Each structure stands twice: as structure tokens, then as C-alpha cells.
Amino acid sequence: MNIEQERKNRLKKMLNQMKEQILKEAREEIKKFQTGEKRQIVEAVMDDADLSVIDLSEDISLKQLSTHRDILKKIEEALRKLEEGTYGICEMCGDEIPEERLKILPFAIYCRDCQEKIEMIEKFESEEG
């Protein structure tokens, strides 16, 4: 097996592990709603302040599920790119994104230098506007 294939296998394994972890967390959140865990809390509510805590808890759970969905989409896109051979290639300059960066930020689409340029431009534009 060549070095490039080994790198691809390592990255694929990392992405699949991350995908499984996100799916597990999402299943646990969904299970809380299905088993009535949230309902049991509602039955113990004493006043309006307790109700707002329940609402906030449900909002947070739904936001977490939404975040999980967004991350899963990014993982699926990264896996697709990995299969077609474009994963880990900066979409701006075309250079290879270091594996260390991909381990920290698996869905990075820019190398560090290009990401910094983009952030500087965004900061400049927000200060102007």
C-alpha cells in the first residue's frame, strides 16, 4: 500500500469514527424525546419559571440536533471528496491541506494560509460596513 492510500485510509477511518459519534449523540437526544424523559420533567413543573427552563432545554436539544445534522452533512461531503480524490485539497489555492489540520478540523476546505486570508477579508468587510 502506498503512502497516499495509507493517508486516505487514516482520514476515512477518522471521518467514519466522527460520524458514528455524532450519530450516537443524535440518537441519544432523540431517545430523550421518545422515552418521555422531557415529559417527566414537565410533569414535575411547579411554576412558569420551571416551564421556561423546559422550553430552553428543548430549544438546546433541538439546536444540538441541528448542529449534528450540519456536521453529518460536512462529514458526508468530506467522505465523498475522499473517494473522488479531492479531500484535503485547498479549494482556494489547490495546495494539500496538512493532515494535522484535517485531524483538528476534518471538514477544512482551505489551508491555514487561505483561511487566514479569508478571515482577514471578512474582518475588513465587517469593519467597513
Rank of each mutant, 00 (worst) to 15 (best):
residue 34 Q to D: 15
residue 61 S to Y: 02
residue 35 T to Y: 13
residue 102 L to R: 00
residue 30 I to K: 14
residue 77 E to L: 14
residue 90 C to D: 03
residue 54 I to A: 06
residue 37 E to F: 13
residue 42 V to I: 14
residue 53 V to S: 14
residue 68 H to Y: 12
residue 20 E to R: 10
residue 59 D to A: 13
residue 89 I to T: 15
residue 40 Q to H: 04
residue 22 I to E: 09
residue 119 E to Y: 02
residue 93 C to R: 02
residue 29 E to Y: 10
residue 96 E to W: 07
residue 46 M to P: 00
residue 59 D to I: 08
residue 93 C to Y: 07
residue 76 E to Q: 12
residue 100 E to N: 04
residue 56 L to A: 13
residue 74 K to I: 03
residue 99 E to G: 06
residue 114 C to F: 11
residue 28 E to Y: 06
residue 105 L to R: 12
residue 36 G to P: 05
residue 78 A to T: 01
residue 40 Q to P: 04
residue 95 D to H: 12
residue 82 L to P: 07
residue 84 E to I: 06
residue 49 A to H: 09
residue 31 K to T: 04
residue 61 S to V: 00
residue 24 K to C: 04
residue 31 K to R: 09
residue 116 E to A: 11
residue 85 G to T: 06
residue 70 D to K: 06
residue 20 E to G: 11
residue 113 D to W: 04
residue 115 Q to V: 00
residue 60 I to P: 01
residue 34 Q to E: 11
residue 42 V to K: 05
residue 87 Y to P: 01
residue 85 G to A: 08
residue 22 I to T: 03
residue 45 V to W: 02
residue 104 I to T: 12
residue 114 C to A: 13
residue 28 E to S: 05
residue 106 P to S: 07
residue 28 E to F: 04
residue 119 E to C: 14
residue 97 I to H: 03
residue 91 E to G: 14
residue 49 A to E: 07
residue 42 V to Q: 14
residue 34 Q to R: 09
residue 107 F to K: 02
residue 105 L to Y: 13
residue 34 Q to G: 08
residue 108 A to Y: 01
residue 97 I to R: 00
residue 46 M to T: 09
residue 112 R to L: 08
residue 113 D to L: 11
residue 80 R to H: 15
residue 118 I to F: 08
residue 71 I to D: 14
residue 76 E to C: 07
residue 100 E to Y: 03
residue 38 K to S: 12
residue 94 G to C: 12
residue 23 L to T: 01
residue 38 K to H: 15
residue 100 E to T: 05
residue 98 P to K: 00
residue 36 G to W: 04
residue 106 P to G: 14
residue 70 D to Y: 03
residue 64 Q to G: 04
residue 47 D to P: 02
residue 35 T to R: 10
residue 102 L to I: 03
residue 110 Y to C: 00
residue 88 G to A: 00
residue 24 K to R: 15
residue 64 Q to E: 03
residue 71 I to Y: 10
residue 103 K to F: 12
residue 109 I to M: 09
residue 37 E to M: 14
residue 104 I to S: 11
residue 31 K to W: 05
residue 105 L to K: 08
residue 31 K to I: 03
residue 52 S to R: 09
residue 47 D to A: 03
residue 33 F to Q: 02
residue 80 R to I: 04
residue 99 E to W: 05
residue 38 K to C: 02
residue 25 E to W: 01
residue 33 F to P: 01
residue 73 K to N: 12
residue 41 I to Y: 05
residue 42 V to N: 11
residue 42 V to M: 10
residue 44 A to T: 02
residue 36 G to M: 09
residue 67 T to W: 10
residue 84 E to H: 08
residue 49 A to I: 03
residue 31 K to L: 05
residue 72 L to D: 10
residue 91 E to L: 15
residue 45 V to S: 09
residue 77 E to H: 13
residue 86 T to S: 15
residue 100 E to G: 12
residue 50 D to K: 00
residue 48 D to S: 09
residue 28 E to A: 12
residue 35 T to V: 06
residue 67 T to S: 08
